[in-house]
Nucleic acid binder design. Structure first.
Length: 504
RNA sequence: CGGGCUGUGGCUCAGCCUGGUAGAGCGCUUCGUUCGGGACGAAGAGGUCGUGGGUUCGAAUCCCGCCAGCCCGACCA
């Protein structure tokens, strides 16, 4: 029995269900017994580790250092910045007690009763601006203490009503950068620098082209002066916000009292920024690159870039084949790809070859190698690329393969980026009128990114959001968006197009 | 937080209307055949049917309470 595709349903049939099935088939994560929280399994976590390590290099290269702050935030801290507090109020988990009392029940069981109520409750961090701000206030006295360039890798919790693996979970992993600066100019440069880091990372490491831009007031981070975003398009033509960086002005410095004595001997408030990406990136990778046979992971971030599948048709040559595979793996591991040693795995499990092969296809390992007795004799390997069909197979002389392996991986990386770029470009349209706009986002139409002239208000945005379920994803940077025109809704003059889309 | 639905072996579900103490497919184990390959056959392991109470000779099945989860909205990295 052979299915046409490994994943049912296909993307075209039911994209959300396809996504769930792909995550499961790739063994990346599962829903846990804790509502809204997921178990990230080794294959999914391995991807996160690579994202984390590679991003961390970029953070260090731009002058940041890592630190760690408490999981629990005093409730009063959240009350310091009104907009911020309001923004997160509906999704906070609150810790109110600090001990349990074992209470024997008549039926012999034990119940644990929370006691020891806290005088001031703690909130499990939904983000750490407030508590890091309090630390910054202690650390900063003089302009000589600035800038502070801190990053934290941690978990946060937002009590989401409708969780989905990786895309929206109650607890998720992320990094949050927090910086404090002497001047607004410096803080804005920092915000833009990190925005660029995210853009580059998405493109060069995850093979996902993004549209960098600024959020409108309505979509802005609560308490921020400016929010920058990188917006990616995934295969159902919806937008997903992949990373944000915020220029916070002096709002949080005021709230947390981050003051310093300036060069002119006056007391001044610092200018702060924050920026982050989360495990949502994994969901973005899956939806951007996956096909009807499962996940496709870009080589640069794949937990294993190459899996070697020993072909062992006869018991008496089995060990010989496995030894040859191990030897090849060792040779490959001495090579570097994008600055890191190749990650090669030999799958020696005693399973049927076909089942094993399909397992790795569904997991999205970029390259599979098959080696059997005949290949040993002919000194060749069978090479299968995940960005090509499941049956596509090229027999390559072993030495030639070893010489060309990193180029081949780069080809896959490039092919994925090219494919994702083509998809995005094919679904980005410049539209002029409200009628065109409505047709573009009609229930039965494909949708995509609509580039529109816009001069409407936040209320206008609200209306469009309610009626058509579309939002302004960003006011994009870049010359191709700069042109004179008239707002499609209000008719007011506009000098730049904005990007509208449905979003995750 | 509003509206709808569902809780049965690891997973997906049937059985419930018309009460008689459990079934299928997938997965798992073993054996055999096959295999440059997501195969086939046979045997087998695994469930106090979410939970508490009620009706009944007898409850997965009927009634009431509770709990949990899912879907559709509002919210969101």
């Amino acid at each position: 029995m052979s299915n046409a595709t490994a994943i049912t349903p296909t993307r075209a049939q039911d994209f959300p269900e396809w996504y769930q099935q792909v995550v499961r088939a790739a063994d990346m994560a599962e829903n846990s017994e804790v509502r809204g929280c997921m178990v990230i399994k080794p294959w999914g976590y391995g991807l996160w580790e690579n994202i984390q390590r590679q991003l961390d290099v970029k953070f260090k290269a731009t002058g940041h250092v890592n630190a760690y702050f408490p999981l629990l935030i005093p409730l009063s801290y959240l009350e310091k910045e009104a907009q911020h507090a309001e923004g997160f109020a509906t999704e906070c988990a609150v810790v109110t007690h600090h001990r349990l009392e074992a209470q024997k029940q008549p039926d012999g069981t034990t119940k644990m009763i929370p006691t020891g109520e806290l005088a001031e409750p703690f909130v499990i961090r939904p983000t750490s601006e407030t508590i890091i701000g309090a630390a910054f206030a202690r650390w900063v006295e003089s302009y000589r203490d600035l800038p502070l360039l801190i990053n934290q890798w941690c978990n946060v919790m937002r009590w989401e009503m409708r969780p989905r693996l990786f895309l929206r979970t109650a607890e998720f992993l992320w990094q949050e950068g927090h910086t404090a600066h002497e001047t607004a100019e410096e803080a804005i440069v920092e915000t833009r620098t990190m925005h660029k880091v995210y853009e580059d990372f998405m493109r060069d490491h995850l093979a996902i082209p993004v549209i960098p831009g600024e959020k409108t007031e309505r979509e802005r981070f609560p308490g921020a002066v400016q929010t920058f975003t990188v917006e990616a398009m995934v295969q159902d033509k919806k937008a997903i916000q992949a990373g944000t960086s915020h220029y916070l002005g002096q709002n949080f410095a005021k709230a947390a009292n981050i003051q310093f004595l300036g060069r002119d001997n006056t007391r001044q408030l610092a200018h702060t920024t924050s920026w982050g990406v989360s495990t949502r990136m994994i969901g973005t990778v899956i939806m951007a690159h996956g096909d009807d046979d499962g996940v496709i992971i870009p080589p640069r971030v794949a937990p294993n870039q190459i899996v070697i599948l020993p072909v062992t048709p006869k018991a008496d040559t089995r060990q010989e084949v496995i030894d040859a595979c191990e030897a090849l793996a060792q040779t490959l591991r001495t090579q570097m790809f994008a600055g890191e040693p190749l990650r090669v795995h030999v799958d020696k499990r005693d399973l049927q070859g076909g089942a094993k092969n399909w397992e790795w296809i569904k997991k999205g390992v970029p390259m599979r190698l098959e080696m059997g007795p005949r290949d040993i004799t002919s000194r060749s390997v069978a090479v299968c690329r995940r960005d090509q069909g499941p049956k596509a197979k090229e027999f390559v002389p072993k030495e030639e393969f070893i010489q060309s392996v990193t180029e081949r991986l780069q080809e896959i990386q490039d092919a994925l980026l090219a494919r994702a770029t083509a998809l995005r470009d094919a679904n980005m349209k410049k539209l002029e009128t409200l009628e065109e706009f409505k047709a573009f986002f009609a229930e039965d139409s494909e949708g995509g990114f609509a580039m529109m002239h816009w001069a409407g208000s936040s209320d206008d945005e609200d209306t469009l959001s309610k009626d058509l379920k579309v939002t302004i994803r960003c006011i994009p940077h870049g010359d191709q968006f700069a042109e004179e025109g008239k707002c499609f809704l209000t008719g007011k003059p506009s000098s730049r197009r904005v990007v509208f889309a449905r979003s995750y």
